[in-house]
């Protein structure tokens, strides 16, 4: 993401932010799980971004800045507050082993809905970090800026999120985890 020149006028907010509209909406919908809430969230994000654009720190990442606004707005919303639960320690879950790996199940099924359902079932911290990394293709550094966590935490949380996702996918495979085993 190109960093805006510090001398850019506030009018350039629209030029920088509107191209992110689809990504922000997709992310908002994943977080809220509701179209109307997602629209409210995106609208509020743009309003806050526009108001605060003068305080945007040049040299920092504008995309990360907008996503951070959206996420913080979500976390303080009614739905966001409900979603604030302690992170599951999915890393402790036993990943089934065997000839058929979760990825094999995924490839065989080619079932996008299964992945979507599995993502939906993840806690918000796992879901959001996977979306930022895999869908938005953000670097660990960018993700750290959005989530305001250290890059090392990004790595460990991503690892646990993927393990949790794989577990959900295995459970959705024909016959469940036991069948895989």
């Amino acid at each position: 993401m190109e960093v805006p020149d510090p001398r850019l006028p506030a009018a350039n907010f629209a030029d920088l932010a509107l191209p992110l509209f689809d990504q922000l909406y997709n992310f908002a919908h994943w977080l809220t799980q509701d179209r109307h809430e997602a629209e409210d969230l995106v609208q509020e994000t743009f309003a806050k971004g526009l108001r605060g654009f003068q305080s945007f720190q040049p040299g920092t990442n504008f995309r990360a800045w907008m996503f951070r606004i959206l996420r913080n707005t979500f976390l303080t919303s009614r739905t966001g507050l409900k979603s604030t639960v302690p992170l599951e320690d999915d890393a402790s879950e036993t990943i089934p082993s065997g000839d058929l790996s979760p990825e094999d199940v995924l490839v065989e099924q080619a079932n996008r809905d299964a992945v979507r359902q599995a993502l939906n079932e993840l806690s918000v911290p796992f879901r959001e970090i996977l979306l930022l990394c895999d869908v938005e293709e953000m670097s660990y550094e960018e993700i750290a800026q959005v989530l305001t966590i250290p890059p090392g935490t990004v790595m460990s949380r991503l690892h646990r999120a993927r393990k949790a996702l794989r577990t959900r996918l295995l459970e959705k495979s024909p016959g469940g985890v036991n069948a895989v085993r």
């Binding site: 689809d22 909406y25 997709n26 979760p102 992945v115 993502l119 996977l130 895999d134 869908v135």
Partner: peptide, 14 residues
């Protein structure tokens, strides 16, 4: 897995 999430994650359009 990463590619699958990338495809599945692009789900909602305004």
């Amino acid at each position: 897995l990463k590619r699958s999430v990338a495809v599945a994650g692009r789900r909602y359009e305004p």
